[in-house]
Structures are given as C-alpha cells and as structure tokens.
Design a protein around this nucleic acid. Structure first.
Lengths: 327, 327
DNA sequence: CTGAAAGCGCTAACAG
DNA sequence: CTGTTAGCGCTTTCAG
C-alpha cells in the first residue's frame, strides 16, 4: 500500500491540511514545517495521489487531443507534429495528455466527458456538434488547423504560405502554374486553393492548363492526376501540390514522362514534411511549424482553464517557404 | 452540476448501491430495477464519474504509452503506428490512453506513477531502471520493439525480415550486398545487423565492399555514406538500408552518381513506411505491422491487469517483404 | 436481489 | 500559519 497524506501527517506531527498545503501551495506553510513534512514524505515514499486530488478539486489537470480526420490518425505527420507540441506544453505544466482519434467519437466523447478531462484540443475537421457537446459538458475546447466561431482556433498562415510559393515560381519565370489539390481536410483545401487563385490573379498569371485539379490524397492518385495534367498540350511549367504527398506524386509523374526537374518542371509542396529531404530533387515546400501550433493550442487551452478571459479567438502561426532543388 | 449517483438513486427510488451495480455489473440487478435506473439516468443525463470510480476501486483503467527514443517522438512513423494500435485496443476496452515521451522521464514517471495509470507500454529503448521503477510502484509494464528479461515484450520478426530481403536479392543474382546501418534504436540495429550477417553467411555471399556501414539516422548522412560506399571499386550491386530513410539516402546517392535503379543498383529498405510509395522507383521494403504490434502490446498489458498469469514473455509479429521496383 | 454505511485520499472552507 | 472537518462520487462489504 502506498503512503497517504495521513501517514505523512502522523509521522511529521502536523495536520493533513498542512501536508496538503505543503505539496500544493508550499508558500502557505512555514519553511520549518514544510521541511518536516517533506522529510516524512521522503521516508514514506509518499506520492500525492492525483486521483484523490482530482476528486476533491473537481479538476483533473488532464486534457485530451482528439484528431478528427477520418482514416488518418496520429500516423499523419502533420497531426503527430501538433501532438508533439501539445505534449511538450502539457508536460511542462503538469498536465497529462490523453490522445484519441475521432473514429468512434460517440464513445470517445462519452468517456472523455465523464469528467476526466478539463479540456480538449480538436485537431482537423471537428464537427460543430462535437464542439458544442463538449462545451455543454463544461469541457474547454480549442481547435487546431480549423476555424469555428466562438472557439479559440490555432491555424497556420495558409494564405501567406501559398503566396510565398507562387511568388517564388513567378520570380523564376513561371507563368503557367497549376495546383494539384487532394481531398485533404476541407478547411485546408479551401484555404490553400483560394489563396492560390488569389495569388495567381494578383499577378495576372494564368492558372495552368487543367487549372487546379482535384485528386485523392494518396501518392497513387496524385501521380495519375499529374500524368494526366502533364501530358496535355500547354502543360504547366510548374505544379504546386497542396501537400508534400501530392507533390511527390507530381515528381514521380514527371520522371516517368522523362521531364527534367526543375528545368522542365518545377514542383512545390506544402507542409515541409520529412519526405521532402528524401526526394530527388529535394522538394521545395511551405514549412508549417506544427509543433508550435500544438504548443499554442495547448497554451490557449490552459489559459482558458485558468479562467483567463483574454484568449485571442484566432492564432495564426506563420509559414515559411523552404527553397530546395525542385524549383 | 452534473447528476450524480445520488440523484439517480433518488429519482429511481433505489439505493445508490443498486445504481452503481446497474452500471458496473448489470447482471446483478433485476431487469425491472435495472430499467428504472437507466430511465432515471437518461432523464438526468447521468454519466458515471470515472474519477470517483477510480478512487473507490483503486484502479484507473488508464494506461500510458511512453516512447523512449531520444529526439524522436510520436513523430516517428514507426512509433506512431504502434501508438495507433494501442489506441484502438485501449479504446475498444474502455481504457484511456496517456501518451508521453521519455524526454524528461524523471518527471513523467513521477506523475505517471502517482497512481494514475494501471500500466504502461514502453516503446523503444527503455532503460531497465525505468522498468523496475514502474514495477516497484505496482504499475504493469510491457515493452514494445525491445527486449528485456522478466517483462512481456512485443517485437517484430527482424531476423525473418532481413532474411527475406537478402533472399530476394540473392535470387536476383546479387552477390555483393552491403547493409547501410544508421544509429537507430540499439535493439533494432543489433537485430537487423546480425541477421544480415547471418543471412549472408548462410548463402556464402560476401558482405559488399565497405561491408556494413554505419551512419547517422538522417537522409543526409545516409546519402553521404552511400556516396562513399558506391564510389569505391567493387561497389556492391545491392544495398540494404537498415530502414527506409537510409534507403532513401542510398537512392539519392545512386541518382547523383548516375546509376540506374534497379539495373545498376538494387535498393532495399526496412519498415515499409509511407515514403516507400513516394520514391522513384518505389522502394522495396520489409513491412512491419506496427499497428498490430501496438494492439498486441496493449492486449498483453490488459491481460496483465486482468490478473491473467499466462502472458507470453515474448510475442513476435511476422514481417513481410513488399517487393517494388527498386530491386 | 437490494440497502446502509464505511471508506478511497485529498482539498477547502472555517475557525483558531 | 495551522488544525478540524465536511465533503468529492462511487464501490463494496455486510446485512437483510
């Protein structure tokens, strides 16, 4: 059996309340007393029991990260990066992190909301219904990589990222540029695609033959779509993939068609995932600091839980072009 | 305020004990009574409070996944896959999953062990000291992707994987084969490397010029090492990367040297990560079912927690060669 | 099959 | 600054 606060109380000759204070609010006990408590605790190998604490305080110091993305999970590098950021921030503040995917969210929600978590970070395409469920259960909510009114959101500067990409391509003399868009998270697709059209429009550039094109989010579909796109007459001289996986498909297609990279075709990705360095030529891509997004999301959530009232409704994390040999 | 068991008790006219039973052991209350309870619960939107439950039962139904790998985290596709498997199994059995990295494990351990988790799955290079700390705190432990006596372990069939790879290369007529080994998890390096030597020896094949070679675990180092390896006289006709990232480096090096793939050089990877499909040519690799490893690890842990005594000390998950165009 | 009641270990008024 | 004490919501003997 583990030692309890009573054992410490007895051994150190102070009340349980004092022991409790010594651990949760050391300032409030006289140094001498505190030391006595700590000594007794050490002797007994006392560890405060977090469950009992949660019970008494009606607060668990536990938050959850729920990835709302069908099929994909923590396996998605992007969401894993966010997870990493959340994890760091949570650990640093003595919060514990529960991770789950949306998949069976009816279940997830119900277990999560049986008062075991103080707040939740929803990553990706969270249904509004889910958000309000949590809120109605008095669980604080923050969104990441998505936007919804009335909830603090953390997103990347998609528009800036796309703009930087288009700008570079334009500088390098490209006039016919296509974007190959996959069925990613709807929010992301919308943002990147409209930013692309806007950036192109501003420069009076023509969206390349085939325009912006839709494909599934896997390499195979992207490769097929790219083959199609590049075989036509007036093929674009540059293709902007809506993410790196899609861009990898474009590179494969280009190779199969015997196009030289980047001479015959420039390729740009988005996300700056680890694959960029593994491709030949290395893929130019828009870097998103996922970890930072996670850290900020966690920070917002914790601020919310601390009862702070000046939480910014929207936090935009800057993006940055990483220029490599593919353009 | 959320409804409690008392509210349900009052509304349904039965005792709290009965309400409790109706939820945690339905068999033990008469159907009619049970129904009354459920109805009242529904009216009140009652959700059993897991914290209180944990408090009373001295058991949290919560497990943790601790990734013991410096630097890398949940971002590592391999460990993320395991995480996914654990997550599924845990959710299915109403366990909750806490995720953390080893990084600051002194802290992690102490928070984890303040009786908030029933068990822990240690992924990767877990220090024996950590294991015994948990055990001494009466927290059940299972290892994944590592082996240690006295603890149930779940690993992949590394030897079989390497053997299949070497076999294929031999079949295709390769006689000089090198392995490029990165500084991965020591357990994995040891297993893959010795399996490689054994498989080569059995077939009387010569470990290629440069033999097995060490490099850091990133693409850049792998590329540099591969350039070196391939420039020499008597270069190997095939290179087996100790994982896919390293193999990607080999491909890059080969391209830079103008070697044709697979005609001039066959490349084989290990892990069958998502990058395989993105490379050109697609990378042949040894598939490891990470999710299954996670699922099994979770299953073992849960069996342990259920007090089952016939837990196999070692579970080996089969690996399988995925042949693609790079060989 | 059901009820009464004693905890589980800690916190938070409140009082001193 | 410290002690007393009443919970937090649920489970679990032990009786009935």
């Amino acid at each position: 059996m583990n030692a309890t606060i009573y054992d410490v109380s007895r051994l150190s000759g102070v009340s349980t309340a004092t022991v409790s204070r010594a651990f949760s609010d050391p300032e409030r006990v006289r140094p001498a007393t505190r030391r006595k408590v700590y000594e007794a605790a050490a002797v007994l190998h006392y560890q405060p029991n977090a469950i009992a604490r949660a019970m008494a305080r009606q607060r668990t110091d536990k938050i959850a990260y729920l990835i709302c993305k069908k099929g994909a999970t923590i396996l998605d590098e992007f969401y894993a990066g966010i997870c990493d950021g959340i994890m760091r921030t949570a650990n640093r503040s003595d919060y514990q992190l529960l991770v789950s995917t949306e998949e069976d969210w009816r279940l997830t929600v119900s277990t999560l909301q049986s008062k075991q978590i103080d707040g939740v970070i929803l990553g990706g395409d969270a249904p509004a219904e889910l958000v309000s469920q949590f809120q109605s259960q008095n669980v604080a909510v923050v969104l990441v990589n998505n936007r919804l009114a009335g909830v603090p959101c953390v997103v990347a500067d998609e528009e800036g990222g796309v703009r930087q990409g288009v700008e570079l391509l334009a500088q390098r003399g490209h006039r016919r540029i296509s974007m190959l868009v996959g069925r990613l998270n709807p929010y992301v697709v919308r943002e990147r695609y409209s930013a692309f059209l806007a950036a192109m429009g501003e420069r009076g550039l023509s969206v390349g033959a085939g325009g912006a094109r839709m494909c599934d989010a896997d390499v195979e579909s992207a490769t097929a779509a790219a083959l199609d796109l590049l075989k036509g007459k007036d093929r674009p001289t540059a293709v902007f993939g809506a993410n790196d996986v899609i861009a990898a498909g474009v590179i494969k297609a280009a190779r199969r068609l015997g196009l030289r990279l980047p001479e015959d075709l420039a390729v740009m990705g988005y996300d700056d995932s680890t694959v960029c360095a593994m491709l030949e030529p290395e893929l130019t891509s828009v870097h998103i600091d996922c970890r930072q997004m996670g850290e900020l999301a966690a920070a917002r959530l914790m601020a919310l839980l601390d009862g702070q009232s000046d939480i910014p409704p929207l936090t935009v994390v800057p993006t940055q072009l990483r220029v490599r040999r593919s353009v």
